[in-house]
Design a protein around this nucleic acid. Structure first.
Length: 571
DNA sequence: GCCGTTTTCGGCCCGACTGTTTTCAGTCG
């Protein structure tokens, strides 16, 4: 039983309790626990097996500890099972309709006995919803429109798309007459790997000018709401965006407020309250007196906190770091000196060794590793021993010809389904840099997955585990990796861990990267480039590392070429 | 249901927008 499965059960429970009109704080407790469980590195199953105290986990008390234990040991959750028989699954689907929440769903279910989206649609078309108390024609119409979107709703977009759209709109808003400042907030600013919606803030003397501009923007499909200070639109891509127009003296407070995360803000507001202050999106107040709000720095300073990089604002690490002293400086793109995962035309890349090396040098990199696929990945024209040796010969030739950048002879070697490596040890021994990865058999049971990873970690020639879970963000779950066991073994064997920078991978994720750092494992942020444009992905990997609280020191490829070589096992 | 403690019960964020309501409830972030 994986952590996120258990978290999912608590979320489902919360949905059902909400429709039943339970105590909202009890519901929040389930959601809160769900979130915390979903973002922890240790496996709950292991914790139960080792008889560890689950109430140590934040948001988990005696009751939930018992429920987790029940789920892990029996695979079931009695309370959830009995609620399931009371609330049909189709009723939960109704929650996905924009503007429809638990109260409305309860009315549909209890008064009209509707149990699915299609029944709800028929009732709306027959005009039955508008007859209900508290409902009218407009609500009925908007539900009718919303039902078709329900399937799409909740879809998240990659940080890369989110940033492209948000940045474009921000840049265009800044050109609008009267707009003096504009910035993206929300999960996009925190660089979360996916975004459910976009938030943009602007200062504009006449808010309607900014809103008119947004309404006319080519990326915008439709205005969903428009008030005096807030406008909500849907972009062509289907994702929704909020624009808030705020006064200058509130910009910092609003930026802080709308950047979140919610959990981070709860803590900040709590600290404010403890000091007799009140924080909202307009500013920090003592009674009715404005204390701060122009900048985020002012807001944090008013409660005795340092300014936090947005990537840290998840209420996971940042408050502990702040308590321990000045915040560490997080790693940044300019710190990265090497890129140690990339492909060429020898396997499935689009550029030659020479082209990749030249492009890397132009981007200011001092060393790279060429790591084409091994033979198992036949689809990608993976290399067998003979072709690999010829390829390395070619790399050495280019190495002699190009100044200003070091090139390592590497390989991205598959860890096969039977827990052996795709190339013999004597071949791997000739490499400068060996990345071991899972590509196939990702659905194998945990025991076999771990057997494979341990085989790689224990091999003396393996330098690093690449994209350790093999997940594809929003598309494919990764293998069932016991990450803490893998990290401990990696630490014991001097094996590094990769943060694969491609926005579709971002693997390790932020939580596991933080766990790796805690164990002292050197982390490498690599782009896995398949063309010269691939190097642009570096920033997404760096953002993920920043979310894990990594500094320059924690990231091996911030070292100079000489320093980096000294970190390798074979030296 | 959790948490903290001014230890065992009270607090748990709150403001914008919409629609239906004529003073507010529901939803959302």
């Amino acid at each position: 039983m994986k952590n996120d499965q258990i978290a999912g059960m608590f979320d489902l429970l919360a949905d059902m309790l909400e429709i039943q009109g339970s105590n909202p704080f009890r519901i929040r407790a389930y959601r809160n626990a769900s979130r915390n469980l979903g973002s922890m590195a240790e496996s709950l199953e292991e914790m139960v097996r080792n008889d560890e105290d689950l109430t140590q986990l934040s948001g988990v008390g005696k009751d939930l500890a018992g429920q987790i234990q029940e789920i892990v040991t029996t695979g079931k959750h009695k309370q959830l099972e009995s609620l399931r028989s009371e609330v049909p699954p189709g009723v939960l689907d109704m929650l996905r309709i924009p503007g429809v929440g638990p109260k409305k769903v309860a009315v549909f279910f209890n008064e009209l006995k509707l149990t699915s989206l299609s029944e709800l649609k028929q009732a709306a078309q027959a005009g039955e919803l508008a007859k209900l108390k508290g409902f009218g024609k407009k609500t009925e119409q908007s539900i009718l429109e919303g039902i078709d979107q329900a399937a799409e709703a909740g879809k998240r977009v990659s940080i890369r798309d989110a940033r492209r759209w948000a940045d474009e709109i921000v840049q265009d808003l800044l050109k609008v007459d009267g707009v003096t400042q504009a910035e993206a907030a929300g999960s996009c600013r925190r660089r979360k790997e996916t975004c459910g919606d976009l938030d943009v803030l602007a200062i504009c003397e006449d808010a309607s000018r900014a809103m008119d501009a947004l309404e006319a923007h080519p990326l915008v499909e439709k205005v969903l709401q428009r008030g005096d200070t807030k406008q909500r639109v849907r972009l062509q891509s289907g994702i929704e965006m909020d624009l808030r127009v705020v006064p200058e003296e509130s910009f910092g407070a609003a930026l802080q407020y709308f950047t979140g995360s919610k959990e981070h803000n709860v803590v900040v507001r709590g600290l404010a309250r403890d000091q007799g202050l009140k924080l909202n999106e307009y500013g920090m107040y003592r009674g009715d007196d404005y204390v701060a709000g122009r900048t985020e720095e002012d807001v944090y300073a008013a409660v005795g906190l340092p300014w936090f990089p947005p990537e840290l604002r998840e209420n996971r690490l940042e408050f502990k770091l702040a308590e321990a002293g000045p915040l560490p400086e997080l790693v940044s793109v300019k710190d990265i000196r090497g890129d140690l995962h990339m492909h060429t035309t020898a396997s499935d890349g689009a550029a030659t060794v020479e082209e990749m090396a030249t492009a890397a040098r132009e981007r200011g990199l001092k060393y790279i590793a060429i790591t084409d696929h091994s033979q198992r990945v036949s689809m990608a024209n993976g290399l067998d021993a003979e072709r690999l040796r010829a390829h390395w010969k070619e790399i050495r030739r280019v190495r002699e010809q190009i100044d200003g950048i070091e090139i390592l002879c590497g390989i991205e070697c598959d860890i096969l389904e039977d827990a052996t490596l795709d190339l013999p040890d004597e071949v791997l021994a000739e490499a400068d840099w060996v990345i071991a990865v899972l590509h196939y058999g990702l659905k194998q049971p945990r025991d076999q997955i771990m057997k494979r990873l341990m085989c790689a970690v224990n091999n003396p020639h393996v330098d690093i585990i690449g994209h350790p879970t093999g997940r594809l963000v929003g598309r494919r779950e990764g293998a069932d990796v016991n990450m803490m066991d893998l990290l401990k073994a990696a630490a014991d064997n001097g094996v590094m861990m990769e943060i694969n920078a491609h926005p579709k991978r971002l693997d390790l994720d932020d939580v596991h990267a933080a766990a790796a750092k805690d164990l002292g494992i050197p982390i490498v942020i690599s782009t896995d480039s398949h063309s010269v444009n691939g190097f642009e992905m570096l920033e997404y990997g760096v953002d993920q590392a920043r979310r894990a609280g990594l500094t320059k020191k924690d990231v091996a490829n911030t070292r100079t070429p000489t320093q980096f070589r000294k970190m390798l096992k074979r030296n």
